[in-house]
Design a protein around this nucleic acid. Structure first.
Lengths: 193, 193
DNA sequence: TTGAGGTTAGACAGACCTGTCTGGTATTGT
DNA sequence: ACAATACCAGACAGGTCTGTCTAACCTCAA
């Protein structure tokens, strides 16, 4: 039967490939970085990549899924630190402020990958999945906060979330998250007043 | 000396190339569309493209510059229709609502091109140029409206402008511009109260 | 008519990309 | 020790891309 170490090795190669893909795809773009760069960075043979993922498209999908999980975990942690839903909403924008200040920040991986992708590629499904998740988080918090129209408030918060990300990247606007946070506070207060 | 018809022919080829580039680059992305597709669409020989623009990068730059001029003209027209600066600001978001509803809308050409581009390409300069222009328009209107901190208000409006564009494209959110408009109205009122 | 300049279609070079395949190697369980 | 299995390195095929170049063509001006 299958032996344990084999799986371990395979997971090792898989993880190294994902780590290399995460670095390179995020920093330089999905279509700019070729397979050869990824396997060289991962220290892995080309055959291993195709045995593990089957295609570059699937590797890209796995890279985005891993990013999605990490992003969701960070947001969930930030939200869980507050009992007050209003504070939790603002905590998401505080988290954005942290993220924008991190070295190597280059915008939203999903926005970037989506702009690069062709329709037949499987990027958009991951992208819309994670966008729906964030919108649902905002909607839940808005409902808990007693907003008159939770979906409307969630839509406003998503706008601010995306707008801050775009401005942080393209304008190198370090205050983008704080600006968005201030507007978000005003909108939450207006919706729950 | 140079004859008039020669120049006319050259302008004709240039315009046909720009029209084809505008259609294809915007609809399918800059890196997805090859030179061959553009010249076929324009009905022009490859040599004419390279005589006129010199490189694909320069064609992309010209395509974005043309988009920039049209976008600026539309915004300026929308702004000029209102005497009241508050109404003018909201008029920009009404214009966005129009744009999002147009057939073939596929997001902001500058955001898309920037996400696709590599640093050595000349996309980012056009992109930051047009972003600075829009921010300045908002700042002028905010100042005229008597905002306490016009730059702060302009930053908020840019956030909403970008966020609406992103949501309109990725979420196919037809209400994005109206949502942004409502938030913008609240922020203008808060800043000029 | 003749010549010049811009046009066209298309071949071509050189680079890059994805994905397959071959052969050699290290590690594992028996 | 031995066989199985995944690993590595790298050649290779087939495709696409940008950009150059050739040769025929058309349109004007003298």
């Amino acid at each position: 039967m299958t032996t344990v170490p084999l799986t371990q090795n395979k997971l090792g190669a898989r993880e190294r490939l994902l780590a290399a893909a995460d670095e390179l795809f995020y920093a330089e773009g999905v279509h700019t970085v070729g397979i050869d760069r990824v396997i060289e960075r991962a220290g892995v043979a080309k055959a291993s990549l195709y045995n593990t993922f089957g295609s570059k498209d699937e590797l890209v999908r796995a890279y985005l899924s891993a990013r999605q999980l990490r992003r969701q975990a960070r947001i969930a942690t930030a939200v869980a630190q507050h009992d007050d839903p209003r504070a939790a909403i603002l905590g998401v924008f505080d988290l954005l402020d942290e993220i924008f200040a991190e070295p190597g920040f280059r915008g939203c991986a999903f926005l970037n990958a989506s702009a690069e992708s062709r329709p037949e590629e499987s990027v958009d499904s991951v992208c819309s999945e994670t966008r729906g998740w964030i919108r649902a988080v905002f909607a839940d918090l808005a409902r808990t906060a007693g907003a008159a129209d939770p979906d409307e408030l969630a839509g406003q918060l998503v706008l601010l979330y995306d707008g801050a990300t775009v401005s942080a990247q393209l304008d190198r606007n370090k205050a983008a998250a704080r600006t968005a946070r201030a507007v978000a506070a005003a909108m939450v207060d207006a919706a729950t007043g």
